[in-house]
């Protein structure tokens, strides 16, 4: 190991790091990576290539566990990084403490994308459970976005019905009865909804909803902002075991720090993510992000271990609901 470190860590004018990320961040990291390469070149004189791999958040975590040489992970939900820490020890269990704001350089939330003119009159989460509404959402087992949608719906009903777990479970059950297609990733769902024309409403990452408007045209879809939604936390972490082996710790750490820089924060806002340093972003980008009352799922359900186990693990709430709903 020491030999590897020495050989790989030697002074090179060129290096490469790999960012394993989740599905909807493709456009975001294309810009971030270019900006970082430029800054790193100016700072250290070294040419750096940041490679990116995208896919469903769970599937991506799996590749890290199985040995993809990722230097950093930027995933859709904290439990996926916990899984890497638990199953492979490549990331320390206390990864949340290593970076500012619990490893969250930006946050996001879930909004609704509907067809132009909102023909079904969708305004809030309860409209998604109405019998004549078809909802397109990804599989919460494989997709981080799918899990945020699930938890957002649950949290909404929990607060609405006086913090009654059973009622919240039942609400989520009736919502998922309205789902005709469960894609494996957020992107698959968007394609199903936007390109293939299925469904009336697509609850999705805020950034993804804006992207659809840009890609498919504002004349085809509207964004509906529900009064309350979830505080979605897509965290980042250093894959310590890999960077030590590859000798890329310096570059990878700099990359993660860069995500908290003013420049990166402005790029997040530009791509409709919610930067943690609002002052670094352009006002017109911020103006696009609507005011929503956001709740934190940890406040309702406890630790991420509990949240994952209760809802998405084998035999969890989602399994029970899909068994009951068939």
């Amino acid at each position: 190991m020491a030999a590897c470190l020495a050989s790989a860590g030697g002074a090179r004018a060129q290096s490469e790091i790999l960012n394993v990320s989740y599905d909807p961040t493709r456009e975001l990291y294309r810009e971030i990576n270019a900006a970082f390469s430029e800054e790193w070149k100016a700072k250290s004189g070294e040419t750096i290539t940041v490679r990116a791999a995208h896919g469903g958040s769970g599937a991506q975590a799996r590749t890290v566990i199985d040995g993809i040489p990722a230097d950093v992970v930027t995933l859709g939900i904290p439990s996926d990084i916990d899984a890497i820490a638990n199953l492979s020890k490549k990331i320390p269990a206390d990864w949340r403490t290593k970076l500012p704001n619990e490893g969250l350089p930006y946050t996001s939330t879930v909004v609704f994308l509907v067809r132009k003119g909102n023909p079904k009159g969708v305004k809030d989460w309860n409209d998604l459970a109405k019998p004549d509404v078809k909802v397109i959402t990804p599989n919460p087992k494989t997709s981080a976005g799918g899990r945020w949608n699930f938890l957002a719906a649950w949290g909404y009903a929990y607060e609405r019905d006086g913090r009654d777990k059973e009622k919240a479970n039942a609400f989520v059950g009736s919502l998922y009865k309205n789902v005709p297609v469960l894609d494996t990733g957020a992107r698959g769902s968007t394609v199903t909804f936007a390109q293939r024309g299925l469904g009336d409403v697509l609850p999705t990452w805020e950034n993804e909803a804006f992207l659809v408007l840009e890609e498919f045209g504002k004349d085809k879809f509207d964004i509906v902002v529900p009064p309350t939604s979830i505080y979605a936390e897509p965290p980042v972490a250093l894959v310590e075991a890999n960077v030590d082996k590859k000798g890329t710790r310096k570059q990878a750490e700099a990359y993660l720090q860069f995500l908290y820089s003013d420049k990166a924060q402005a790029i997040f806002a530009k791509h409709h993510y919610r930067p943690i340093k609002r002052e670094a972003a352009k006002p017109e980008d911020l103006a696009q992000l609507p005011e929503i009352k956001l709740f934190k799922i940890e406040d309702l359900q406890g630790s991420w271990d509990d949240i994952q186990k209760a809802n998405f693990d084998n035999g969890g709430l989602f399994d029970q609901l899909s068994k009951a709903g068939r």
């Binding site: 790999l18 394993v20 490679r51 990116a52 791999a53 995208h54 896919g55 590749t63 993809i68």
Partner: peptide, 8 residues
């Protein structure tokens, strides 16, 4: 594959 762009 791991889906690394430009690599795998």
């Amino acid at each position: 594959s791991g889906h690394i762009r430009g690599l795998t």
